[in-house]
Amino acid sequence: MSHSRDERRAELVLALVALVSVSVLGLITVFVFKEGLPAFREMGLWQFITGHRWSPSQNAFGIFPMLVGTFMVTLGALAIGMPLGLGCAVYMSEFSGPRSAALLKHMVELMAGIPSVVFGFVGLTVIVPFIRTYLGGPGFSVLASSIVLGFMILPTMVSVSYDALRAVPQAYRDNMLALGATTWQTVRMVVLPSAKSGILAAAILATGRAIGETMAVIMVAGNATAVPESVLDPVRTLTSNIALEMGYSAGLHRQALFATGIVLFVIVTLLNLIARAAIRGGSAK
């Protein structure tokens, strides 16, 4: 009897713990929308999203430069992180021996644990001066942010696409090799096509990570609220916008920052839905 009572008590406590974890998500959602929605009402959703000027002292709140900035920085990060990460995953899964694959996997996981401020610091002391000296401009730029973010999304990119590659049946590889195909031909013809939905999911998750990253970007982006005209121009992302100004904002300014949060929330949620659909589409086959 007491056994089953213990069982029920444990179940109850764990259910409560689970509920608390999930309810935080609900609370954040409600809070962000409650604080941010008035800003949309005040100046109109369209005006907020397409407005080119962000000048809190003059009550001008247009997040277009930050939207473009986030878009450019994320695209740049993917352009750097995706080929690097996928290449690393393919090497680990198809070419290296099991021992060096395990070592690489450990190192990549270790990389995921590096605080973002450290990435930002390295970017600030190495990449920014390098760009300023050799490519021109202030150094604080779209390019610097893309490079830093490109490396920060590597762990996600590598581990998710590595899992997708390992999930490809070994029988495909054996059959291809038995036909006289080389490992690289096998990878190109069969392994990558079979794993493509998982690799797509990796890219989307990495995109979400790139969009959400704040600290490292603030340190190397320059944070000007103008639409960047080249990759060497300073840039401000949506997340940086919130982090930089939240401390001293009030009234409509504060609401506009929460509204920025809503826009971010919608973008990241959409990305997650797409990633899930991609993973489901892959496993259904």
């Binding site: 029988a171 495909y172 059959n175 291809m176 038995a178 080389t182 069969v190």
Partner: peptide, 19 residues
């Protein structure tokens, strides 16, 4: 080796079609 495998074809236990 690739040429050897062309001369010596193989069929496995699990029927496997390439995707």
């Amino acid at each position: 080796v690739a040429d050897l495998r062309r001369r010596v074809g193989m069929v496995f236990a699990m029927p496997t079609s390439l995707p």
